[in-house]
């Protein structure tokens, strides 16, 4: 299923610029974040069931990279790969970065984004559904994802939420559901 064109994507100039920048070491950082989550919220990984061993490819269309995620508890890993080297994986989720981020913190409803074609799902839809329902239960905030707590967490969340909200407006992303 083809994406609805242009909605919510970074401007082409920025997309081109990013291709020439060195990739930030996000993979290792996210791997740690997911592994940390597995000790804090083991129920989430139990909820994923057999799908925690599935290979999810998350493809932000406006970035030159894809993320490969295997959410296997303490053995979880996240890898950031150049698009050309993206493996097929068990399931692939494609969309503008701002929409993908909105799915993690619950700004967007996965179903709604799918039916409005702001999001494309390929491969094992059961795996994606398991991931979606688990995210729904997880209720992650941006700060939680990077392992903050206490007062700092609230500050970061508020800051991240307003930044994302502004970004959604600037990029003409779909309205939050």
């Amino acid at each position: 299923m083809a994406l609805k064109p242009e909605r919510g994507q970074f401007p082409p100039v920025l997309q081109t610029a990013m291709r020439f920048l060195p990739p930030p070491p996000l993979g290792m950082f996210l791997t740690h974040a997911v592994r940390r989550l597995s000790t804090q919220r083991p129920d989430l990984f139990e909820r994923l069931g057999a799908y925690k061993r599935a290979q999810f490819i998350v493809d932000p269309v406006d970035l030159p990279y894809v993320f490969k995620l295997v959410p296997n508890g303490e053995h979880a890993f996240v890898e950031m790969l150049p698009k050309a080297k993206a493996p097929q994986g068990d399931a692939k989720i494609t969309g503008p970065l701002i929409v993908l981020l909105g799915l993690i913190d619950g700004t967007y409803d996965g179903d709604a984004m799918f039916f409005s074609r702001d999001l494309v799902i390929e491969g094992d839809t059961d795996a994606v559904l398991a991931l979606r329902n688990t995210m729904e239960e997880a209720d992650l905030t941006p700060a939680e994802l990077i392992g903050l707590n206490g007062q700092l967490r609230d500050v970061v969340d508020r800051c991240a939420n307003s930044t994302l909200a502004n970004l959604r407006k600037v990029l003409d992303a779909p309205q939050a559901g």
Binding site: L48, G49, D126, L129, R132, N133
Partner: peptide, 19 residues
């Protein structure tokens, strides 16, 4: 429950006994 005993047996949905 998170198994075939209920009519919304979708991946990632439903409750464990503890939940």
């Amino acid at each position: 429950f998170r198994n075939e005993t209920n009519a919304r047996n979708f991946p990632g949905l439903n409750f464990s006994v503890k939940e």
